[in-house]
């Protein structure tokens, strides 16, 4: 249960992200660059947040409200950064389109735009998984394991890997939703993303209660699935719209 366990935890947390990366992103250099820059952006937000909160650490585990405020500020900040990311992306899209014109290639397709959004979201998700789960996994490769008091049925590493997986899904697909929402000025989509993020963050507060992770994690997965389905529906709708538009044109 040493190296095998460690690799297992890593794959639980990052398996789907890895599959997405290999299947979709690694073939297109531009998407890799998007992924890297979005990961870096997320890391910078994390550093800024920890800089802001460092005077108040360590927090007392007996009270819930400091954690509540912490999560609230963090999520608000990250959603603000998402808007920033979007404006940067808009500029980039213009550049890419003029460039495509210049080399007489087609402009970005709908699918291309969605793939860029997906790469950006995956970058956020990966950064989350890496910094909250993977970087704490080092001891899991050793001979021992670690349990936290509040969630004593499962090893800590397993719990954090599972939470990381849920957040990878949420971050990845909510970026797709958000980008399409911004592009179409769709208020529902725009509001959906911060709310999902907030709900997911608040659900992790349940873990503070003793044995809370037994309830918190399934609910987190519910949120992840809701995001996934919502995103799937939205992408389907946009693709069919685009398809019918093309038929009309031709």
């Amino acid at each position: 249960m040493t190296v095998a366990a460690g690799i297992g935890y890593v794959l639980i947390g990052l398996g789907p992200a890895l599959a997405l990366f290999v299947a979709l992103i690694s073939t297109k250099p531009f998407l890799i660059l998007t992924l890297l820059s979005s990961t870096l952006l997320w890391l910078i937000t994390l550093i800024v947040l920890s800089g802001l909160w460092s005077p108040f650490l360590p927090l007392e585990t007996t009270q819930l409200w400091p954690f509540f405020i912490l999560l609230l500020t963090s999520i608000a900040f990250q959603e603000a950064i998402r808007i920033l990311f979007w404006t940067a992306y808009r500029k980039l899209e213009d550049i890419l389109d003029t460039f495509a014109d210049r080399v007489s290639k087609p402009r970005l397709y709908h699918t291309d735009k969605m793939q860029i959004a997906l790469a950006g979201g995956l970058g956020h998700g990966l950064a989350h998984a890496v910094f909250f789960c993977l970087s704490l996994l080092t001891p899991a490769f050793g001979p021992a394991t670690f349990y936290v008091e509040k969630c004593s049925r499962m090893p800590f590493f397993l719990v954090s890997a599972m939470i990381a997986l849920a957040f990878v899904i949420i971050h990845t697909f909510s970026m797709v939703i958000a980008f399409s929402g911004f592009a179409e000025q769709n208020k529902v989509d725009q509001m959906f993303v911060p709310i999902v993020h907030l709900v997911a963050g608040m659900l992790t507060l349940v873990n503070v209660a003793s044995g809370g992770c037994m309830i918190g994690i399934p609910m987190l997965y519910l949120v992840a699935f809701v995001t996934l389905i919502y995103c799937g529906k939205m992408v389907f709708r946009r693709l069919t719209e685009a398809g019918s538009r093309q038929e009309n044109l031709s």
């Binding site: 890391l43 994390l46 550093i47 947040l49 920890s50 800089g51 909160w53 460092s54 650490l57 360590p58 927090l59 585990t61 954690f67 912490l70 999560l71 963090s74 999520i75 990250q78 989350h128 910094f131 909250f132 789960c133 970087s135 704490l136 936290v148 509040k150 969630c151 800590f156 719990v159 954090s160 939470i163 990381a164 957040f167 993020h197 997911a200 963050g201 992790t204 507060l205 873990n207 503070v208 992770c213 918190g216």
Partner: peptide, 24 residues
Amino acid sequence: MFYFLTRLIMEPFVVGISTNLMMF
């Protein structure tokens, strides 16, 4: 820069909240 920022500022924050199983 990132090494020292991470080591001095980020790590206590991340370890502190993630050992309480709180993430965002």
